[in-house]
C-alpha cells in the first residue's frame, strides 16, 4: 500500500461527493418496518454488502483496471498481459468504460437506482476533476445523467495511485458507511453500537472487496450481478414520496 493517506481520504464519508444525502435504501426499508433496530440494521447492511456492495466494488475495480491498462506491463512486471486485458490508450479505455456502463445499467433494474448511481457519479466527478485535473475522466461515457458512480470511482482511485483492491475496498466500504450513518440519523441508534456493528462487518467488507477485485479480471459481461429485488422495489416507491429525508 503505497499511499495509505489517499486511501483514507477517498474512503472518508466527509469526502465531498454527495454521500451525505443518500441512505442507500435504508430510509425506505425503515419506513416499511423492515429495519427497526441494530439487529435488523446489521442484516440490512450485510445484504447490501453482498449485493450492491459486491457489484459496485467489482465495477469500480474493473474501471480501475481499464484506467491503468496501459501501465500493466511496467507497474506489475511479474504479471504478463492476458488476452482479456482491456486495450490500452484512450480509445481502448473509452470502449472498455462504455461496456462497463452498459453492463452496470443491466445490473441495476430500478430506474430510480440507475439515476441515483449516475447522480452520485456526477458528484464524484465534480470533486475528482478539481482534485486530479489530469485524470482520464474524458474517457467516461457521455450520458445525460452522468457516468455511474463506480466507474468514476475507479478512475479517481487510479488517478490517486491506489491499487485495484484498495479501489474495491473503498467502494464496498462506502455502501456500508452511508447506510449505517443514515441509520443513526433515521432510527436514533446509539452511534457507538452502530460503529461496533461496522467493526463486525469489516471482514465481510474486506472479503467482498477481494472478490470484486478478482472478478474484475473477467470480461464485463461476467462481472458479479447480485441483486436485491426488494431494495429495487423500495427504491422505486421511495422516489415517489412527497416527504423524504434522503435523496435515495
Amino acid at each position: 500500500m503505497a499511499t495509505p493517506s489517499l486511501l483514507l481520504l477517498l474512503a472518508d464519508g466527509r469526502f465531498p461527493a454527495g454521500a451525505h444525502a443518500h441512505s442507500g435504501g435504508l430510509e425506505a426499508a425503515v419506513a416499511a418496518g423492515r429495519v427497526t433496530d441494530l439487529a435488523s440494521l446489521e442484516a440490512f447492511l450485510a445484504g447490501r454488502l453482498a449485493t450492491a456492495g459486491l457489484v459496485g466494488a467489482a465495477f469500480a475495480a474493473a474501471a480501475h483496471r481499464a484506467a491503468v491498462a496501459e501501465t500493466v506491463g511496467s507497474a506489475h512486471p511479474a504479471r504478463s498481459a492476458r488476452p482479456s486485458d482491456p486495450p490500452a490508450g484512450s480509445a481502448g479505455r473509452s470502449a472498455a468504460l462504455a461496456r462497463l456502463d452498459a453492463e452496470l445499467d443491466a445490473r441495476t433494474a430500478a430506474p430510480a437506482l440507475r439515476a441515483v448511481s449516475r447522480r452520485q457519479g456526477r458528484a464524484l466527478l465534480r470533486a475528482g476533476r478539481t482534485i486530479w485535473p489530469d485524470a482520464r475522466f474524458a474517457d467516461l461515457p457521455q450520458k445525460p445523467g452522468g457516468a455511474h458512480q463506480p466507474l468514476v470511482l475507479g478512475l479517481l482511485c487510479a488517478a490517486a495511485g491506489l491499487s485495484r483492491v484498495e479501489t474495491a475496498t473503498i467502494a464496498a466500504y462506502g455502501t456500508l458507511t452511508g447506510a449505517a450513518s443514515a441509520g443513526v440519523r433515521l432510527l436514533g441508534l446509539d452511534p457507538y453500537q452502530v460503529q461496533a456493528l461496522l467493526v463486525g462487518l469489516a471482514d465481510a467488507c474486506d472479503g467482498t472487496a477481494a472478490d470484486a477485485a478478482r472478478a474484475a479480471d473477467d470480461p464485463p459481461e461476467r462481472l458479479p450481478a447480485a441483486a436485491a429485488p426488494l431494495a429495487d422495489i423500495h427504491a422505486e416507491i421511495h422516489a415517489t414520496w412527497e416527504v423524504r429525508l434522503f435523496a435515495s
Binding site: P16, A19, H22, F246
Partner: peptide, 21 residues
C-alpha cells in the same frame, strides 16, 4: 430543489456538489 439528507448545512458548506449540479 436539492435534497439534503437531514444535513442542510452540509449541502451548502461541506459538500456542495448537489447545489453546483
Amino acid at each position: 430543489a436539492v435534497e439534503t439528507g437531514c444535513c442542510p448545512h452540509t449541502a451548502i458548506r461541506d459538500d456542495i456538489g448537489a447545489n453546483l449540479d
